[in-house]
Nucleic acid binder design. Structure first.
Lengths: 202, 202
DNA sequence: TCCTTCATGTAACCGGTTACATGATTGT
DNA sequence: ACAATCATGTAACCGGTTACATGAAGGA
């Protein structure tokens, strides 16, 4: 239901067409909630049908300008106050990290350092964006700035964590006494066999 | 395609049934990649059909124990080395933050503080988990620990950011005197004054 | 004229969620 | 005997992605 609320949210500030909204997704909102053209148009049609928005003006190329109805405004406020949205749960990068032990140690370490570097680049981009934009014009950009700051901090976290994790893996090359490979094994055992992990089910 | 790889990854360490895998998702992997029972069974069937896993043993209640085939192992390594997965993009909480200006200022601030507190609680849970688990038994838990640490740092970030953001909103001054209708700023381009959320505060 | 941008729509597909349905085995 | 757990499957639905399709308006 979140795309729905994203569209309503944008329409609170000013009426707009599907095309206008698409632009906003692509330039700003898409950082936290991406949406494709086909989905936006479909959702707008539904929103119109349920009476949360309506066409208030028609323009040149079949352009339909949508505005919020009172019901739409109420729904937006309700969404903001009543629903407590949680963090995103699916993280592909952490999923890979979970299985990083299957790679030779150096490769695993390198993957983490690559992630750190990629995050650093993204960090710089976001900082540049923060310092470029003409902020504080309206509430949308005031809150947009809060969101952007979150992104910046996030990239710092990714960097620091990835470097720490790389260190952890590097440090883990102690050979354990009871035979099993405790750290990340080298290339010896990992070709064909599902070698592994342990038998220590105690 | 990530569920697929998650299943393969788990099966590298030890063979298991759909039921076993479901348990692992619910207890550990699910933190970064949740999966439901129906999806797991469906995916295992597909994986079996494509020859990446196979049934190596049948148990009591129609239990089918799956193991990786060499092709499945190769695919897992390929996934880890070749694909560079990105960060999650959809964040419902940040989406709401984007529109927080529609609420009266105190309410918006409170939402952020609530988020900080919720994150603090999650933080404590994760720290407890870190200090309870019997770690370093095998590679899975070594890397699991890296992932857990990420979660802990993430919660710290959320707290710090949310408190900072609350301060930012609070610092935004000036109740606009004419009192716009319930939080819609409209077209007033009052230059650099960050226009207040709305007039609902006294 | 021709290219770009504006502008909307639809159909097929895929991954994930909810819910239903069934039954065997084990422990108390 | 009964409940809990083990164990698998399927069908309907929903949100999101890819791709296709169409055409008007404006500027070079």
């Amino acid at each position: 239901m979140s795309l729905r609320n994203a569209l309503l949210g944008l329409l609170v500030f000013r009426p707009g067409s599907g095309y206008d909204l698409l632009k906003m997704f692509d330039t700003s909102l898409g950082y936290v909630w991406p949406a494709k053209q086909s989905q936006i148009y479909g959702e707008l049609t539904k929103l119109d049908a349920t009476g949360l928005i309506k066409v208030t003006e028609e323009g040149p190329r079949g352009r339909k300008q949508y505005s919020l109805t009172p019901a739409g405004h109420a729904e937006t406020v309700r969404w903001l106050t009543e629903s407590r949205e949680s963090r995103p749960q699916r993280n592909p990068m952490l999923l890979q990290t979970f299985f990083l032990g299957l790679l030779p140690r150096e490769e695993a370490v390198q993957r983490l350092l690559d992630h750190a570097e990629a995050s650093a680049k993204e960090h710089d981009t976001l900082v540049a964006l923060r310092d470029t934009e003409d902020w504080d014009k309206d509430m949308l950009t005031v809150c947009g700035r809060l969101v952007l700051e979150h992104g910046i901090r996030q990239r710092v976290l990714e960097q620091e964590w990835a470097r720490w994790a790389a260190d952890q893996l590097r440090a883990g090359h102690a050979v354990d006494p009871d035979g099993g490979p405790t750290g990340v094994p080298g290339k010896e055992t990992d070709t064909e066999e599902p070698s592994a992990a342990n038998a220590s089910d105690a």
